[in-house]
Simulated scan of single mutants.
Amino acid sequence: MAEKPEETQTTPSAGEGAAQAAAAGGGLKTWLPLIVVVVLMPVLAYAMTTFVLVPQLQKSLGLQPAATEHGSSTGKSAKKEGPRVSVSMNKLLVNVAGTMGSRYLLVSLTAVSRDPSFQARMQEHDAELRDVACGILATKTLADLEKPGARNLVRTELINAFNNVLGEAMVEEIYLTEFAIQ
């Protein structure tokens, strides 16, 4: 009878077995970068929003950060306790956007602050403030101006723009004393 060749059974060594098990099951080392990214990205997004984006937006809009609003009364709070100072800007005349020059908007306004240097700063920057106001008003279409709350939107845009020109949040309120569309 012919002899059968012996079947050789190979047993994997310990190092090869662990490598095969890790490759088959995935292993922690394989998933670690994904876990780190999934956990770390929301934390980074929250930190960037809270400590970088929101403070920059508040600064550019002339808003006070929440910490100074609830803090002790210093600096800016002291300004809000003084007498109110008003400065008028009369007869700002601009063409209404989208009317090809056939309609115009006539606006007179009064800006109010409690800052003692407000009147001098407004006179010093009068040309810039009039230019900014006319620029904002000239972008409004007839439909924009006829919407409910249009005056409040214009008022808010003017306050933000005036505060940007003046370099600090001096303008507290703007009253539109004349607002006529012709």
Results as ranks from 00 to 15, higher is better:
143 A>Y: 13
164 N>T: 08
3 E>M: 04
170 M>D: 06
10 T>V: 15
171 V>E: 06
82 G>K: 11
46 Y>N: 03
50 T>I: 01
130 R>M: 09
73 S>P: 05
150 A>W: 04
138 A>V: 00
34 L>P: 02
108 S>M: 06
173 E>K: 07
51 F>V: 01
137 L>Y: 11
172 E>V: 03
37 V>M: 08
3 E>N: 03
85 V>K: 03
125 H>K: 13
38 V>K: 00
100 M>K: 07
6 E>I: 10
5 P>D: 10
114 R>F: 10
166 L>K: 05
158 L>Q: 04
152 N>K: 05
118 F>S: 02
28 L>N: 03
115 D>P: 01
156 T>G: 09
57 L>V: 14
57 L>C: 06
42 P>M: 01
170 M>Q: 12
87 V>N: 02
126 D>E: 15
89 M>W: 02
147 K>R: 09
36 V>C: 12
78 A>I: 15
175 Y>F: 11
33 P>V: 02
118 F>W: 05
100 M>V: 05
168 E>W: 05
50 T>C: 01
57 L>K: 04
24 A>R: 00
73 S>G: 04
117 S>M: 05
68 T>Q: 14
48 M>E: 06
78 A>R: 05
9 Q>K: 11
144 D>N: 08
30 T>S: 11
19 A>Q: 07
141 T>V: 01
130 R>G: 10
22 A>R: 06
22 A>L: 13
60 S>Q: 12
51 F>A: 00
161 A>Q: 09
54 V>W: 13
100 M>W: 08
63 L>T: 05
113 S>H: 08
182 Q>M: 09
109 L>M: 15
20 Q>D: 09
21 A>Y: 07
70 H>W: 10
27 G>Y: 07
1 M>T: 09
160 N>T: 15
15 G>H: 06
87 V>W: 03
179 F>T: 01
136 I>A: 03
1 M>C: 10
125 H>R: 09
10 T>R: 04
129 L>I: 14
93 L>H: 15
39 V>I: 14
43 V>K: 00
180 A>M: 10
168 E>F: 11
32 L>D: 02
173 E>H: 07
